[in-house]
Design a protein around this nucleic acid. Sequence first.
DNA 1: GAAATTTGACCGAC
DNA 2: GTCGGTCAAATTTC
Length: 272
Amino acid sequence: MANNNNNNSMASSMAAREEIEALLRRQQQLVTQLRALVLPSLLRDNVGGESAELAVQLFDDVIGCNTSAVSSLLRAGGSLFGAEPAVDDKSLVRKKMLNRAISPGEIRMKEEEQTRPVRSVATKRRRKDGKRSRSLVTNVPHYDGHQWRKYGQKNINGMQHSRSYYRCTYKERNCSATKTVQEQDHNRSSFSYGDETVKYTVVYYGHHTCNGENISNGNVDLPQLVSMDLDQTVEEMARMTTYQAQEFDEGDLDVPALLEVLDNPLLNWDMW
DNA sequence: GAAATTTGACCGAC
DNA sequence: GTCGGTCAAATTTC
């Protein structure tokens, strides 16, 4: 009897925890998207300067607070909400799928992903120059505040889509920054709900030593969203936000990487 | 004509 | 030998 009560309260605590966690993560996404929308407008309208810098700081502070809240929640998970029972990956996937009313076919696909052999770190090829890298998942891969020139494209083993290679436009100024853009396989992305949102994995290598001259002179490369009329931009962002909410999955959220979505000189490149 | 992109070849890590 | 990353000539775009 007492056991039943315990189980019930544990279950409701876990549900509450999951709900809070989901809300916090959703908040992170929204702020990050708002940041990506607002800052380029400041730069484009040449409002820039201190206002833009302050805006970057404020957005980062908000996201930072949110990240801390999620971390605290996860750390306190055991004591506050009761330790989660150990489950194997497959049953976890099933649980997640059931909570989201996903079809058995998709469950099978996800299970296959779990059992698919993963290329070990040791077998990964090292870049020739050994540059450090950061990665993020985004649906606006070209939108990072820098100007890039494509210098290559390759079909990658096991990937449906080819990978594109970009280097900083200001390479002649000794800027060694490069990035790769890889469209994610449609059926490998997080659980989708029938939408057709395309996601890209963007990996950045090296430092920008061009000091973002492209931005300071107002000649910012603002592909896709920012090149649209403002009304259209807001409308588009709202649409994207909806999709993000629908397909949200905890595995997708890489907050440090998202913090660099607007990867311009207003951010401190030396911090990584 | 300049700048950007494409694409096959090459290089080097594994 | 395979494969990911880069180079550079050819092609396309503005």
